[in-house]
Deep mutational scan, measured.
Amino acid sequence: SRHTFEINGERWTVEGVSEELKEILRAAERASNDEAERLLRLALKLI
């Protein structure tokens, strides 16, 4: 499935992501810059 999210003013669209990964991306959208970066690094390990 496709998911579009915005982090630090940048929009991203990813396809074929699991519900778990979507949850991480949604958390990154709400997080501070440092926390968002940490969550994105974690998410990339899952891809």
Rank of each mutant, 00 (worst) to 15 (best):
K22T: 11
S18W: 08
I24N: 00
L39R: 00
L39A: 01
K45T: 14
L44A: 05
L42T: 04
I24L: 13
E6A: 01
A36G: 05
E29L: 06
K45Q: 14
I7K: 02
R11W: 14
S32M: 08
A36M: 07
E19Q: 09
L39D: 00
S32V: 09
H3S: 07
E23R: 08
L40R: 03
E37W: 09
A27E: 09
V14T: 04
E20S: 08
E29W: 02
K45H: 14
K45C: 13
L25K: 00
I24R: 01
E23W: 07
E6Q: 06
S18Q: 04
T4R: 04
R38M: 10
E19L: 06
N33R: 15
R11A: 10
G16T: 11
V17T: 06
T4M: 10
G16M: 09
L44F: 06
L42H: 08
T4A: 06
S32K: 09
L46V: 09
K22R: 13
W12V: 11
R41K: 14
E29C: 04
G16K: 05
E20Y: 13
R38P: 02
G9A: 02
A36C: 05
R41Q: 13
R26W: 06
A43L: 11
E37Q: 10
K45Y: 14
L40C: 06
N33E: 14
L21Y: 03
A27N: 09
I47Y: 06
L44H: 06
E35R: 04
L25I: 04
I24K: 01
E29F: 03
I47A: 08
L39H: 01
E20H: 09
V14K: 01
R26N: 08
G9R: 00
I7T: 02
R2H: 11
A31M: 05
W12E: 00
A27S: 09
A27Y: 05
G9W: 03
H3N: 09
T4N: 08
R30N: 12
A27I: 07
E23F: 08
L39V: 02
E23N: 12
S1A: 12
K22I: 15
N33T: 14
I7A: 01
A28F: 06
R30F: 09
E10S: 07
R26I: 10
K22A: 13
S1D: 14
I7C: 13
S18A: 06
N8E: 05
L46E: 06
S32C: 09
L39E: 00
I7E: 02
E37K: 09
G9I: 02
L25G: 00
R41M: 10
R11V: 15
A28R: 02
E29K: 04
H3T: 09
E35P: 02
A31T: 05
R11G: 04
A31I: 03
A28E: 00
V14G: 01
L42D: 08
I47F: 07
E35F: 05
L39Y: 04
T13L: 11
V14L: 09
A27V: 05
S1E: 14
R38I: 10
E10A: 07
T4D: 07
E20V: 09
L39G: 00
L21T: 11
E10Q: 13
W12A: 00
L42I: 11
I47D: 02
S1G: 15
A31P: 01
F5M: 04
H3M: 14
A36K: 11
N8I: 03
E19T: 07
F5D: 02
R11Y: 15
E37D: 12
E15M: 09
L21I: 15
K45R: 13
L44P: 01
S1I: 13
E19K: 07
L39S: 00
E20P: 06
E10L: 10
F5T: 03
D34I: 11
L25P: 00
A31G: 05
E20R: 08
I24G: 00
E15D: 10
S1Y: 06
E19C: 13
E29Q: 08
E19D: 13
T13A: 05
V17W: 06
R38F: 10
A31C: 05
E20L: 09
H3G: 06
L21V: 15
E19I: 07
L44W: 05
F5Y: 10
E19V: 07
A36N: 03
K45N: 14
I47P: 01
E23L: 11
G9Y: 02
S32Y: 07
I7R: 01
E6H: 08
E23M: 12
E23Y: 07
L25E: 00
L46A: 06
L42K: 07
S1T: 14
L25V: 02
F5V: 08
A28N: 01
S32R: 07
L46W: 07
S32N: 12
S1C: 15
F5G: 02
L40N: 01
E23S: 12
V14M: 08
V17M: 08
E37S: 09
F5R: 02
I7N: 01
N8L: 14
S18E: 04
V14Y: 06
N8A: 08
T4K: 04
L40S: 01
W12D: 00
D34S: 11
E29R: 04
D34V: 11
